[in-house]
Each structure stands twice: as C-alpha cells, then as structure tokens.
Design a protein around this nucleic acid. Sequence first.
DNA 1: TACAATCTATTACATCAGTAATATTTCAGG
DNA 2: CCTGAAATATTACTGATGTAATAGATTGTA
Lengths: 122, 122
Amino acid sequence: MKSLPQISEAEFEVMKIIWKYAPISTNEITDRLVKTTAWSPKTIQTLIKRLVTKGVLSYEKQSRVFVYTPLVDKTEYIGQESNTFLNRFYNGNLSSMLSAYLDNDRLSEAEIDELRSLLSKK
Amino acid sequence: MKSLPQISEAEFEVMKIIWKYAPISTNEITDRLVKTTAWSPKTIQTLIKRLVTKGVLSYEKQSRVFVYTPLVDKTEYIGQESNTFLNRFYNGNLSSMLSAYLDNDRLSEAEIDELRSLLSKK
DNA sequence: TACAATCTATTACATCAGTAATATTTCAGG
DNA sequence: CCTGAAATATTACTGATGTAATAGATTGTA
C-alpha cells in the first residue's frame, strides 16, 4: 500500500472543496473558502500551490486560469489517516476504540443503536 | 470541557511511558525509550522538558534527580484526540466511521463479530 | 575541598504549517 | 502593440516539532 502525500489540516479544508467540485478553478475554490473560513485569498493560494507541489493536485491551464483535479482519492486518504490514528491511540483496531467509547460513556443510546444497526445489516 | 495541552507525536511516546510507570525519573524514562526508539538521550531530555513547559508533567526533585508525574489524564487526552479526529474526518461521529469501514471492507468477519459482541454486552 | 561524573538548562538548526505580502507574468481590451 | 488588471510565483515570518549538541549546575568521591 503506497503512502499518500501528507496533507495538513488547512490543506485538507481546501481538498474537501476540490474533491467535491473538481474540476474547479482557483477563483471558485477561493470564493467558496472565503465564505466558510477566515482565510485571505492569498492564504488559499498558498495552500493550493503547496498541494500541487506535494502531488495532491494536478492542474490544467484553461486559457488564463488554472483548473485543478485531485490526484489523491478522498476515501483512500481518509482511510490512511484513520489507520494512523487507530495505530497511534487504539492499538490499530476499531474494536479498542469502540470499547473505550463504551467504557467512558461517550456514546448515547441512539448512537449505540445506530452502530448495532450498521453491523447487523452487514 | 477544558482543552488539554497539545502533545506532539514524539512527546506522546514519552507520555506513554510516564503514564505507565509514574512516578518515574529522567533516567528510567530515557532507558526505556532508548530501547524502543532510535532517539538519543538528549532528544528524550528535550521532549520531557517540553512536556513540563506545556504543563503536561510536573516533577519533584528527589535529591539529585527529577521524578515526573503526569498532570494530564491519558484517557481524557485520547478522548480529546478522538473527538478531533472524528470531527475532522467523520462528521464527528463514530457511526460514520464504522459505516465507512464497512463500506470499504476494512474489517474482517472476526472484527465485525468483536464489535457486535462489544455492543451487545452494553 | 576540588574535581570529575552526572544532571539539567540553554542553544541550535531544519522542516512543516499557518498566514500572508510582494513581485512577476500574462492576457484582453483600448 | 502596449498596458493595466488579474492570475500565478516568489518571498516572508512565526511557532511547533524532530533531533540534538553544548553549556552550566550539582554532588559524591578522592
């Protein structure tokens, strides 16, 4: 399993937009993020640039503007992050995590039912 | 819910030792970590120091050496990290995570049984 | 009591991430 | 074909982290 590029938290916010709307231009990315974050357009620019450098995005010059497409699959990326997380905090398995959540009463009855239901459907 | 101090990945490795063996001296921490990591004792020193600065550890001078005790609860810290993680990647809930794991066939039949069993016990 | 061994404290330096500002390039329109 | 607005590229600066090295303090022992 190849290791995907590292994507920082801020970069991930950018990626969420791109995964959702790709192919998408710099301006559209910026417009959308300016509404949901406190970032300057310049900051967003920088983040996009870094994502290109890291190989997370490719772009195509359409006349004067760049249009971006993700090179990394969202599900795959989140899966990798999840593995890293479980390894770091829960011996690498979801059961340990669930067990801790149950022990510490972090789940409501409704959530527990939801989990049961998901598992029974499988 | 107060927000706990930020603990970096390397610092967390140090904390795992301290959580397990506290109260514990610098030397004992170092000895243990030197065996399981590739870190220089100097590096371990630095990490311990930073944890003290951040308020994650307190120490007591016992004659010549320092003996450390955690100020942050492990379960609480992991709980906070888990929340952050779920918020970032799974809309803040464990069901979404489980759902993704099931959808992507990331769980063996045995693991699924384990999860079911945990939930039925509750 | 002075010194060497041992601790602890301070300083170092590179990289990444957050957050921009400035500089340069490039079209589209006058 | 030149120019200014718009786009992209380069540079900047701070704090955190990884990873130590060096400097200073302390103390048991000769």
